[in-house]
Amino acid sequence: MVFAKRSTKDLIIGKTPFFAVLAGLTLLPLLGVGGYWLDVLTKVNLFLLVTLAIDLYSGTTYYLNLGVSFTFGFAGYALALLNIYYGIPIEYSIFLAVPISVFFSLVILLPSLRIRGVYFAILSLLIPIVFIGIVTAQPFSLYLGGEGGLRYKQLFLDFARSLPPGIRLTFLQYSYYYISLVAAVIGYLIAYKIGFSEFGFMLRAVGQDEELAESVGINTLKVKVIGYLISSMYVSVAGALYASMRSPVTVDLVVPANTLVPPLTSAIVGGLGTIIGPAIANYMLLLTYESLWGLIGRWRVIVYMLLLITIVVIKPQGLVFRIYLDLKKRLRGVLLE
């Protein structure tokens, strides 16, 4: 036995923050949070999946996949195309769009998994840029909607129309929020399980010394491909759900500044490879960014970016996870006294 078993008290203390946050997020709409902020929280919940995807793959293997926004947007476009051209209801399109998006992400990026470092990052960043070019150029723009995007009936819209006008929007907001919350919670629990499983440690071994990992018997290519598949699946689920809740789908979903930079920043500031840190940072950073709008308006972009740069310069190895560990230690001290 290498490690001693954790006591019941330790387990309770370990799970308390998770259940406290979960209870908070579940009760928020019932406590009166609605409208704009419920929309923001829905987006933040879905972005958690993207943050976790980045942390699970790039945070462990150090293969910086900047093509995440392509996968996110591609899932959205796949959902829209299935609905518009094949008449598949949005509810079912979500389930079909995910494997399609994962498949295309894998086919496009698979050849580049043999290269690493900055070359992999640059190559992966080119993919969303090329995709934006394709969507907006003729003849593809005729089918893909060009810059105006593709319009379709978003999730539950028909049902909402059968409701009294006063509660239609509220119904849609609440249902979207809880769907995103369920997806976020399931995504987090699975990511945590994977991140600290034997496979998760193999991903970390690849990141720490790929040549050594291969030399001691780890099939590094297989580990990278499976890791990438899992990561793509997370992003595809997020992209498909996001698009299902917001029509039209446009190239905005593929623009890295919109769907890559926020989760990537959360993963870095949270502490790469720690799962918990990036998850907390996802909520902290994105909600801070939205809050700044009310305080300083358009200046928020500059203030927010300066804040992020400062954090990354001071604590390049991540800040949130360390604070989390410190707080947990204090909580443990208080509860065990």
């Binding site: 440690f201 193999m202 720490q208 010394d209 050594l212 990992a213 001691v216 018997g217 780890i218």
Partner: peptide, 16 residues
């Protein structure tokens, strides 16, 4: 593997 505990450095080989 510098950031994996000693036992995992060995156990990962065993699992492979």
């Amino acid at each position: 593997f510098p950031y994996l505990p000693v036992y995992l450095n060995v156990e990962l080989v065993a699992r492979a």
